[in-house]
Design a binder for these strands. Structure first.
Length: 670
DNA sequence: TGCCGAGGCCTTTTT
DNA sequence: GGCCTCGGCA
């Protein structure tokens, strides 16, 4: 029995009960959005709508997993047919089934940012475009914008056209797709092949899109294609929390939805169940400075004792870290707040290091989400590259990554030779090598042929192992030994064996993760391909089921990745003028000020009880220290709501003694 | 020809 | 701190 009436307020109830026809839900920060969505899905299932007819699209893998789990919890059902995924993961799913029609093979590789940069670079080299004159990073972004039609071809970027075309062609030759393709190609298929479109429309009769304000134009297009026939499309968003416009998300989605689904029902959730009055007043006051927004005013019934927002000016980032660490420790002791209820947020990943150091030296357990994730670490990426090449040999980018890692004699000359050969044959490096391996003509340098032979034999041997069902983790273990990656690590880190050992430890962990995945009873396809699909889309360590239970860990993350989360006690580090609003962002376009303000708004509204902001007087940049100014957004928070914090005095010894005594009692009791 | 150390470059946010 | 490039060495 669901008992919706008891669990939801009037607006939430209406939203959860409106299943037919398009619905637009404007859900303010902390308004119980996730709760509403999960109950809505549960309600759907209860009224007899089959799991397989529901497609819920979210923004992050984490959100998808959480939603899935909460629905499972409410309904107590096995949810094997319910699709809750990100747009990108859904794209992969569709492409694995249908990509053949576009001339790709369904073992295609998915290229992330790193692979993409490598491919552009490689392509540029081939076209003899000087790589120094080319800002690879910007070029990659530009290609993405062009591909998703955010930016038209113009006179300024016309010169990049040959490079772009060649890039695209290479993707195809390598049987690879990039992140944009995961949305673009499904749209292409659905638009071009009505029978496929019909199939998907018939399958997914009910669509839901969470974080609609962060949906990009092409994602919207995909959603519209799937939903415009059934018209059972429910989108949930908050324009004040739109913080991904640089990725092609913008308020136009809302306008388009209103135009495409004129009969929609509109519901606003304005009651905030998360934050105290003070915090909400600060957030409301801040966001009211934005011109472009749907007016709404969040309100809350939660009273908060005293001032719940404080500001502290540490001398430098080191003092900032110490301050935060000490505050966490004393709040934990005095107020018995468990570690997992603390959040430490910041604008850029680069702030992680100093904060991490401070927490580490204070023995405070923490976890970092975002930044360079586990799967992006070099040692892990190297091994994944081997797996990718085993799965899809035509994948040149990954092949180049591993061909001489660890060193096996493929130097510059050898590579040039192979490259020239593959170019003349218009094929991938792997195909070129296969030809060379058996070629009888004697023009081939003997050393190269021998190296090629060894390398290909290695791949052949492990391909068989890796494709063997249920044998993945063992095969990976064998592979790592066979290529003597440990020897390579030692060689690379002669001066610091600790690093080598740490990296090797990561590999052990990696094997363990694969093993767990392989043996998971819920996993009905433990193949190499399905594993690769999975990890390419997982960009954070949201993966491994954390051992949250005992005391937990303090959460460190960027504001962007904190979206959708909440914390009792929130620290906001680096509230400085060049960081938020970020100088780079304003430089790019002064209009970004509003987005930066929304970002700050998102940060403030993550807090339930209290916010401690820090603003360094000086901060070490990449070259030397710089003087910092307080963020201008601080002035948009009414002064009465904020108090200036003095240096936090450390916990008195007797207080700590009390605490430890109480701990001992708690432990010895049961 | 391949390897290795020294020096210069760069980090806004993410699927 | 990591990545790339360059120049000298084996």
């Amino acid at each position: 029995m669901l008992d919706l009436e008891k669990k939801l307020n009037k607006e939430q109830l209406e939203a959860a009960k409106t299943l037919e026809g398009p619905v637009l839900i404007i859900a303010g920060a902390g308004s119980g959005k996730t709760r509403m969505i999960t109950y809505r899905i549960a309600h759907m299932l209860q009224t007899g709508i089959p799991q397989s007819s529901i497609l819920a699209l979210t923004f992050t893998n984490k959100a998808a997993r959480e939603m899935w789990e909460r629905v499972k919890q409410i309904t107590q059902k096995k949810l094997s047919n319910l699709t809750v995924s990100t747009f990108h993961a859904f794209g992969v799913k569709l492409l694995r089934e249908e990509i053949g029609i576009l001339g790709y093979k369904n073992n295609f590789s998915i290229y992330d940012q790193t692979d993409k940069l490598a491919l552009i670079k490689e392509t540029a080299r081939e076209l003899k475009i000087a790589t120094e004159s080319l800002d690879l990073y910007n070029t990659a972004n530009l290609f993405s914008s062009l591909k998703t039609e955010r930016v038209p071809w113009s006179r300024e970027n016309a010169e990049l056209r040959p490079l772009y075309n060649e890039y695209q062609e290479h993707l195809k030759i390598y049987n690879a797709v990039d992140f944009d393709d995961l949305i673009i190609l499904p749209i292409l298929i659905l638009e071009k092949y009505p029978e496929i479109l019909g199939k998907y429309r018939a399958r997914y009769r009910y669509l839901m899109v969470d974080e609609f304000q962060d949906t990009s134009l092409i994602q919207y297009k995909m959603m519209r294609l799937l939903g415009e026939e059934s018209r059972n499309v429910c989108v949930v968003g908050d324009d004040d929390q739109s913080i991904y416009s640089w990725r092609g998300a913008n308020y136009q989605n809302l306008l388009m939805f209103e135009k495409d689904f004129p009969e929609r029902k509109e519901i606003k959730l304005e009651q905030n169940y998360r934050s105290t009055k003070n915090i909400l007043a600060a957030a409301n006051s801040l966001i009211s400075n934005n011109k472009n927004r749907k007016t709404k005013e969040l309100w809350t019934g939660i009273e908060g004792g005293g001032t719940s927002i404080s500001l502290f000016y540490p001398e430098n980032e080191q003092k900032e870290g110490e301050f935060i660490a000490e505050m966490i420790r004393s709040i934990k002791i005095r107020e018995k707040v468990p570690y997992q209820d603390f959040g430490v947020l910041f604008r850029t990943n680069s702030l992680t290091t100093s904060l991490e150091e401070a927490l580490l030296s204070h023995n405070i357990p923490y976890k970092v989400s975002g930044g360079t994730s586990f799967f992006q670490r070099k040692e892990i990426k190297d091994i994944i590259s081997y797996l990718r090449v085993l799965a899809n040999p035509e994948d040149d980018v990954n092949l180049l990554r591993i061909i001489n890692t660890p060193r096996r004699g493929f130097g510059k000359k050898a590579l040039e030779y192979l490259r020239a050969f593959s170019e003349s044959k218009k094929c991938s490096l792997y195909s070129a090598m296969s030809i060379l391996r058996w070629a009888s003509d004697s023009g081939i340098p003997e050393k190269i042929r021998r190296d090629v032979e060894d390398f290909l034999s290695l791949l052949d041997f492990y391909r068989e192992k890796v494709l063997h069902p249920k044998g993945l983790s063992e095969a990976v273990k064998g592979l790592i030994e066979a290529i003597d990656y440990w020897g390579y690590l030692i060689l690379e880190h002669q001066k610091n064996e600790k690093i080598a050992r740490w990296k090797y430890g990561n590999l052990v962990k990696f094997i363990e993760i694969i093993r767990r995945w392989e043996e998971d009873p819920d996993n009905d396809d433990p193949s190499l391909f399905s594993y690769l699909n999975r990890i390419t889309l997982i960009t954070r360590e949201e993966d491994s089921e954390e051992e949250e239970s005992k005391g937990g860990k303090v959460n460190l993350m960027t504001i962007h990745s904190a979206k959708g989360l909440e914390f009792d006690i929130l620290f906001l580090a680096g509230v400085e003028a060049h960081l938020i609003p970020h100088a780079k962002s304003l430089e790019e376009n002064p209009d970004n000020l509003e987005e930066e303000r929304r970002l700050f708004y998102v940060a403030l509204t993550r807090a339930k009880k209290r916010i401690h902001m820090t603003c360094c007087r000086t901060r070490k940049g990449i070259r030397g220290s710089i003087e910092c100014q307080p963020s201008p957004f601080l002035e948009e928070i009414p002064a009465g709501l904020m108090e200036l914090q003095q240096e936090e005095k450390t916990v008195e010894p007797e207080e700590a003694a009390d605490y430890f005594a109480s701990l001992r009692n708690a432990v010895s009791k049961p």
